[in-house]
């Protein structure tokens, strides 16, 4: 199973052993699992990530707003990834970044320079009309914008959590999301 998910004590634990959320070519299907609920109209998803262990440099995890739960659905994902530092090959710091698919027929997009972060870190995506804003925070109060982008999603979408670990053949990548909040705008 590419993704396993459990819920206990108010926390979601996701274990990913394969999959890949594509970003370079948006006509390639994602191979990911998604733990989701519905969100109609404007709103947001926010979660506090307290654990991000054993993810390969091509692995990642985060919160996602997604138009359709099928391989080529439009999405924005505010995520953590393990990055490779050129001068420090043994160091694999965690960074906050995004991936998204704006159109099935076009090139995808990602933040070119992800920001290095330390756990815990809060991730958030807000939707207002067709505008999607991904942010992260070290304390749940002060937010730093990762990306704001227009994505033509329908009125009823899914909000949730995802994780993937493309080359994690020997180990699961484990991520814990605490205090997950999906809110519909008033």
């Amino acid at each position: 199973t590419p993704l396993q998910a459990t819920f206990a004590d108010g926390k979601f634990t996701l274990q990913a052993d394969s999959g890949m959320l594509f970003f370079k070519r948006s006509d390639e299907a994602d191979g990911v699992g998604f733990v989701h609920r519905s969100l109609e109209g404007d709103g947001s998803i926010m979660a506090k990530v307290t654990k991000f262990d054993d993810f390969h440099v091509w692995g990642g995890a985060g919160v996602m707003l997604r138009d359709e739960n099928k391989p080529l659905g439009l999405y924005m994902c505010a995520m953590l990834e393990t990055v490779h530092v050129k001068d420090q090959p043994d160091q694999h710091p965690i960074a906050a970044s995004i991936r998204m698919r704006r159109q099935v027929s076009n090139e995808g997009f990602r933040v070119q320079r992800p920001d290095q972060v330390k756990l815990p870190v809060w991730l958030k995506i807000e939707r207002q009309g067709q505008t999607f804003r991904s942010s992260y925070s070290p304390d749940g109060k002060e937010w730093k914008l990762l990306k704001e982008m227009e994505i033509p999603m329908g009125p009823k979408i899914s909000a949730g959590l995802t994780a993937w670990n493309r080359y994690g053949k020997t180990k699961f990548g484990t991520v814990v999301f605490d205090d997950v909040q999906v809110r519909k705008a008033p």
């Binding site: 993704l3 819920f7 979601f12 299907a29 990911v32 998604f34 733990v35 989701h36 609920r37 391989p71």
Partner: peptide, 19 residues
């Protein structure tokens, strides 16, 4: 069981696989 089938994680939350 089909590992790609959707299943409930906790009330209101569903795990789906696609791709």
């Amino acid at each position: 069981a089909d590992p790609f089938a959707s299943r409930s994680v906790v009330a209101g939350w569903t795990l789906s696989h696609f791709g």
